[in-house]
Simulated scan of single mutants.
Amino acid sequence: MAHTIRQAVASDLPALLALYAQLKPGERAAPDGAATAAWAEMLANPCMQVLVAQVEGVPRATCTLVILPNLTHGRRPYALVENVVCDAAFRRQGLGLGLLHAARERARQAGCYKLMLLTGSKAAGTLRFYEKAGYNRVDKTGFVQWL
């Protein structure tokens, strides 16, 4: 499917919230004051990039890339990918894979020594998707502590 990948802009907030509502059912899909403030903070953060894959000008998939400074590994930064979601009507068409490849390239350009991703999904198809994108489940063990 023909799509373009770009960094999100302020006007993308309603489309992103609609995508996040698919990721986390029950999330508010319409912008409110708190979402607008958080979005402004995200856009102003030089360590954070929200990428979108758009089809016919509409964001249909997104992921967040965070590049963090570091004192180990020759002071090379590392990167995290989070909030990966593709509109259900546009899955299996290359948008998500394109986004993850774009995130990897941006992390490489920033000099990162690793790129990490956690998923809460146990679905075999989702795990295969991340493996197809180049991630593995062998090298590290992930832990989460909810606050």
Rank of each mutant, 00 (worst) to 15 (best):
Y20R: 03
P31W: 00
V58P: 06
A2K: 15
W146P: 12
V138H: 13
N70V: 09
V55S: 14
G98R: 07
L68S: 09
L95D: 11
H3V: 10
V84T: 05
L115G: 10
V66F: 02
G94L: 07
Q109P: 02
P14M: 07
Y135S: 11
V50W: 02
L99R: 08
L68K: 01
D12R: 00
W39C: 04
G98F: 07
R106Y: 00
R104A: 15
A124C: 07
R92K: 13
L115R: 08
R106M: 09
T4N: 09
G26L: 09
A110I: 05
R104K: 14
A53H: 00
L100M: 06
R104G: 13
H73G: 07
R92F: 00
T126I: 13
K122W: 03
T119M: 00
Y130A: 03
G57T: 09
K140M: 15
G120N: 11
Y78G: 10
L68M: 12
A10G: 12
R108A: 07
S11N: 04
M48E: 08
V50H: 01
T62I: 10
P14W: 04
L97R: 15
L51K: 05
T72L: 12
A88E: 14
A8K: 02
R6S: 09
E131I: 08
G134K: 07
A18C: 06
G120W: 01
A2Y: 11
Y78D: 09
L16Q: 09
C112S: 10
L127R: 13
A30Q: 14
P25R: 06
L23E: 00
M42E: 08
S121M: 06
Q49I: 09
Y113I: 02
S11M: 04
A53R: 00
D12H: 03
G134Y: 04
H101T: 15
V58G: 06
E131C: 10
A89Q: 11
E105G: 11
R91F: 05
T4C: 07
A79D: 02
G98M: 11
L16M: 13
G33A: 13
Y130I: 07
A2W: 10
A38W: 10
P31F: 02
A37W: 05
D32C: 05
L17F: 03
P14S: 07
Y130E: 05
T36Y: 00
H101K: 15
R75H: 11
V84Q: 04
E82N: 04
F90L: 12
A88I: 12
L17G: 01
D87C: 11
R60L: 13
M48N: 12
G74S: 13
V85P: 01
D32T: 05
P31V: 04
I5P: 00
A37K: 08
D12Q: 01
L115P: 09
R6H: 02
